[in-house]
Design a protein around this nucleic acid. Structure first.
Lengths: 227, 227
DNA sequence: TGTCACTCGTGACGAATGTCACATTCCCGT
DNA sequence: ACGGGAATGTGACATTCGTCACGAGTGACA
């Protein structure tokens, strides 16, 4: 009967194909830690000790510019992994990771992980697929920031979120507001005020209805058409 | 004595550690083709047949938006590889690749490559390192486009190019103009006119001198300070 | 040598976006 | 319940940036 932590190892996307014995050995190397909301899990520029698995909670990966503005590179949900890049290119952390909630995070030490990657080609293959998908999504992020308007980027976020997390109701799709406008601004590469105004405009156009803790998408086709 | 094409295989970054016999088998799978200037080597959205190695010439990888504007993701020099992403995530080409010169390009078929990756852990490891570096540079690209001004991005390009390709002369560093302003604009995520004007301003500030086929960087420290 | 395509320079203009300032609302903990 | 911090709404404004239009310079090639 596998221990709790070996189960945990097998639940990590890259490592699901490890044999049980290896998973149990690996489990002893894991370090699990809890982070408070808005606490930094990793800091840009610092050396890395391994990669991370987000077990519970939400987090954001971002870079900040000179004037204090921030650009979110990725939002993390439970089950997501992060920090693989410095493990494989040997550099410092390329970005800062911050907990948005109370987060439980497992740290997978570099050396143990690299060893497993070298020994199990399936792990390497899974990781290559993972990296490839991440590169593709970066391609999309660059295109959006560079070639689309703020309204388009916000519309895309709302559209995607509505499809993934939305609940259909008689009036439309109800999307819970999981991130602040400040974070949404950082996600689409803009500032809070512009996000606020842009969403108002979409409300005046009858596309959405902004509520306290949720957004009602009245006309998802119109939202789609904005992108 | 290795054939010419086996040499070629061993010259490919990811494959340099293959044993000779494997390289020779592999060489038979390669397809080399020549592309004219401004010809498309791969097109965004189309399915991929393998990844590419740029043997000679220069090329650019870009995505284009609705209004015809383009964002260059990467400039390619001889020896660079591209198109790995769709090989490993199974999707279509994430971007378009266009020859800037007369280019010789080798196509490495997906199936043959994936086979070698599965069999040789060193190849997989090299590829992981390569993907990690690419992810890191995307991080930087996103930050630049999102958080820096056009002037800063141009200054960075000039500074980097001066350090990598510049020739020191009594008056400063001479940088050959290898790409058009149109392409430079697409590289920094702007338009030709703005690039032209911005470089004029830097000229008026005595930082650079714009010439027909080259740029003289008079004050590289000032250039550095702009970034 | 003329012409045609390409590249670059530049002025005028407008739209999108970021900045600043301040009011309002909400939520959380004591 | 109440205070205070966080999140949000909004007006007025500054500025960067992109768009449009047009002219000039250059080089390749017949």
């Amino acid at each position: 009967m596998p221990s709790v932590t070996a189960d945990l190892v097998l639940g990590i996307p890259h490592l699901s194909m490890l044999p049980l014995a290896e998973a149990e050995r690996f489990a002893r190397e894991l370090v699990v830690r809890r982070y408070a909301s808005r606490e930094f899990i990793a800091v840009e520029g610092e050396p890395c000790r391994g990669f991370f698995v987000l077990l519970s909670g939400r987090a954001r990966i971002f870079r900040s510019g000179a004037d204090g503005r921030e650009q979110i590179l990725r939002l993390l949900a439970p089950g997501d992994t992060f920090g693989e890049v410095p493990v494989f290119d040997g550099g410092p952390n390329p970005a800062t990771v911050e907990a948005l909630d109370l987060c439980d995070v497992a740290l997978v030490p570099s050396t143990a992980f690299r060893l497993v990657v070298a020994r199990y080609p399936e792990v390497a293959a899974a990781l290559l697929g993972h990296f490839a998908r991440r590169l593709r999504s970066f391609t999309e992020l660059v295109e959006q920031i560079s070639l689309q308007t703020v309204q388009q980027r916000i519309a895309r976020y709302l559209y995607m979120t509505a499809r993934e997390e939305g609940v259909t109701s008689p009036d439309g799709v109800v999307v819970p507001r999981t991130i602040t406008q400040q974070d949404l601004a950082a996600l689409v590469g803009s500032v809070r005020e512009v996000v606020s105004r842009t969403m108002r405009v979409m409300e005046e156009d009858g596309i959405v209805e902004i509520r306290r803790k949720e957004i009602l998408v009245r006309d998802i086709a119109a939202l789609r058409a904005l992108i």
